[in-house]
Simulated scan of single mutants.
Amino acid sequence: MKIIKISILALTLGLMSFTINPNIKNESSKVVIASPLAWKAEVVEVGEIPQGTPKAIQFEFKNTSDKAVIITNVKPACGCTAADYTKEPIAPGKTGFVKATYNAAAAGSFTKTVTVTTSAEETPKVLTFKGTVVVKA
C-alpha cells in the first residue's frame, strides 16, 4: 500500500512539471510602443582620426511625439569623451542633438558610448561611435 501511494505521488509530481511551463508567452498580449525620438543614427563610424586631435560626433534626433521632450542626462562612458546636448525642451516635430567630443589621446581602434536619458522614455538610449586613432606622421 505504501509503495502504491509513493508511486502515485511520484507520477503526479512528474506530470505536474509537464503541465506548467513558465516559458510560454502569449504573443498576442505584447504591446509595441514606438520610440518618441527618431534618431538619425545610433551608431556612427568616424573612420581614422589623428592622435591628439579631438573629434566631435553629433547625434541628431526628431521628437515624433505629441509632447515636448527634455534631455535630463547625458553620460559618456569614460573620461576621454565630453558631452553637450540640447538644453531646452524639444517641441513636437522639432529636432535636438547630443554631441560627443572624443579626445583621441590613445592610438588604436576605439568604440565609445554615450548614455542619454530623456523625459520621454524610461529606458536610456545608448549611442555609440567608433573608429581608429592613428599616430601623426
Rank of each mutant, 00 (worst) to 15 (best):
Gln58Leu: 10
Lys55Gly: 04
Ala56Arg: 04
Lys75Tyr: 06
Thr19Arg: 07
Glu121Leu: 06
Ala68Thr: 11
Ile49Trp: 05
Ile4Lys: 10
Ser109Ile: 01
Met16Phe: 13
Thr111Gly: 08
Ala91Pro: 05
Asn103Trp: 11
Ala41Ser: 14
Ala83Val: 14
Thr95Val: 03
Val126Cys: 05
Pro36Lys: 00
Ala104Arg: 04
Gly131Ile: 09
Asn21Cys: 06
Pro36Cys: 00
Ile70Asp: 08
Thr101Leu: 02
Gly131Asn: 08
Thr113Ala: 09
Ile33Tyr: 12
Thr19Asp: 00
Ser7Asp: 06
Leu127His: 10
Thr115Pro: 03
Val116Glu: 00
Lys136His: 01
Val43Gly: 03
Lys112Gly: 03
Ala100Glu: 01
Val126Ala: 09
Ser29Arg: 15
Thr123Trp: 00
Pro124Leu: 00
Lys125Phe: 00
Val46Thr: 15
Val114Cys: 04
Gly108Tyr: 06
Thr101Met: 02
Val32Arg: 11
Ser28Ala: 14
Val31Ser: 12
Ala10Met: 14
Val98Gly: 06
Ile3His: 09
Gly96Val: 04
Asp66Gln: 13
Gly52Met: 06
Lys67Phe: 08
Val43Thr: 15
Cys78Gln: 10
Ala10Lys: 07
Ile33Arg: 12
Phe110Cys: 10
Gly96Ser: 03
Pro76Thr: 06
Ala106Ser: 09
Gln58Trp: 04
Ile49Cys: 07
Ile90Asp: 00
Glu60Cys: 04
Ala56Lys: 14
Val32Gln: 13
Ile24Glu: 10
Phe61Asp: 07
Tyr85Arg: 08
Val98Tyr: 06
Lys30Thr: 05
Lys5Arg: 12
Pro76Gly: 04
Lys99Gly: 00
Lys75Asn: 12
Thr117Trp: 07
Ile57Cys: 08
Glu88Leu: 10
Asn23Lys: 14
Lys87Tyr: 04
Ala56His: 04
Val114Asp: 05
Leu13Pro: 10
Cys80Ile: 03
Thr95His: 05
Lys40Pro: 00
Pro22Arg: 14
Val126Lys: 14
Leu15Lys: 07
Pro76Ala: 12
Ser7Cys: 12
Ser65Gln: 07
Val133Gln: 01
Ala83Trp: 02
Asn26Gly: 05
Thr113Gly: 09
Gln51Ser: 13
Val114Ile: 05
Lys125Tyr: 02
Lys94Thr: 05
Lys125His: 08
Thr95Trp: 01
Met16Pro: 05
Val46Trp: 04
Ala100Gln: 03
Gly131Phe: 08
Ala34Asn: 15
Phe61Met: 08
Val116Gly: 00
Lys112Pro: 02
Trp39Ala: 02
Met1Asp: 12
Asn23Ala: 14
Ala83Lys: 07
Asn63Ser: 03
Leu13Val: 15
Phe110Glu: 08
Ala10Val: 15
Ala56Asp: 06
Glu88Arg: 12
Val133Trp: 01
Lys87Gln: 11
Val134Pro: 01
Thr118Gln: 00
Gly93His: 01
Leu9Trp: 10
Ile8His: 06
Ser7Met: 13
Pro22Asn: 13
Lys75Pro: 01
Ala104Glu: 05
Leu127Gly: 09
Thr111Asn: 11
Thr95Ala: 05
Trp39Arg: 07
Glu121Gln: 15
Leu9Met: 12
Tyr85Asp: 02
Lys125Cys: 00
Leu15Cys: 15
Thr72Pro: 01
Leu127Ala: 08
Thr95Asp: 05
Lys25Phe: 11
Ala106Gly: 01
Ala120Ser: 11
Phe129Met: 09
Thr118Ile: 00
Pro92Ser: 01
Gly47Thr: 05
